[in-house]
Design a protein around this nucleic acid. Structure first.
Lengths: 139, 139
DNA sequence: CTACTATCTCACGTTAACGTCAATGTTATA
DNA sequence: TATAACATTGACGTTAACGTGAGATAGTAG
């Protein structure tokens, strides 16, 4: 498994090194460290970062809100490991139900956001129409 | 034309009075003033505010970005007045073309945002599916 | 091993978007 | 017209999300 140092990750994700350190500080990523303390990011870390960035940019989630989202994907990534470690089926079921709930909430938020964006879009299109009518009259 | 004082507007728009004063400070709204200096908001002001809030919340536009948007709607609202004042047809046409350009850009941004949100949604739905499979296996 | 470059950890600075007094002025009501 | 209930203008405080050095270490190419 290849590992990347902070500068590669920064350019790959279009973030600054400072931002990456900050994201670690608030618990959004947890890259491993080398013997000497240098951060080493896995491809999984990078993928997670890209998703975070997308959610931050496009959904306007705060970094605090994103920590919740991170936990869910984290748990899903650890799924197999948990499978082996957690003998307790009931506990496992509870976790899945919890995650399902979180996802439902997120999907609900996304749907509401979509409909509000559509409203905005319709509004803008109406304005554009009025403008084009205005242009037509000038001929 | 009924006019509203700051507290009514604040509750109507679900903003604080401080926020309304701040929005005026950075030029997002310009309510008239009473003789004594009290802010008086028209229904048009309120409508504009609500659109701003929606764009801020759902599109994640910064207040600075929104100033541009405000100008466009402003110009459209002043359309008739301009019609009478601007005898120069060519100038008028240029203004309309400018506004059309701005709107096109906004619509483009909105479309891109929509597609990225859909990508996020698809991702979340996939996760949910995996979770539900996991739950099914536990039975 | 050396020299050079990249990374690390403080720690203080910055900006947007408000919050929170305090002192003063304005409106509405009895 | 007095007085309670709002409003207004400073002006300083706050929080999130980083920016920007400084000084000390780690990694790497020759």
């Amino acid at each position: 498994m290849t590992l990347y140092k902070i500068d590669e990750v920064a350019t790959a994700c279009n973030l600054t090194k400072r931002t990456l350190r900050y994201y670690e500080e608030i618990g959004l990523v947890s890259p491993q460290r080398s013997e000497g303390g240098t951060r080493l990011y896995s491809q999984t870390d990078i993928d997670r970062l890209k998703k975070i960035i997308n959610a931050r940019d496009v959904l306007g989630f705060s970094l605090q809100e994103l920590q919740h989202y991170v936990k869910v994907t984290e748990m899903l990534n650890d799924q197999r490991e948990q499978y082996r470690n957690t003998t307790d089926e009931e506990e496992r079921r509870q976790q899945l139900i919890e995650m399902n709930k979180t996802l439902d909430q997120q999907l609900h938020m996304v749907d509401e956001k979509l409909s509000r964006i559509y409203a905005f879009k319709a509004d803008a299109e109406l304005l554009r129409q009025r403008i084009q009518e205005g242009l037509a009259k000038l001929n």
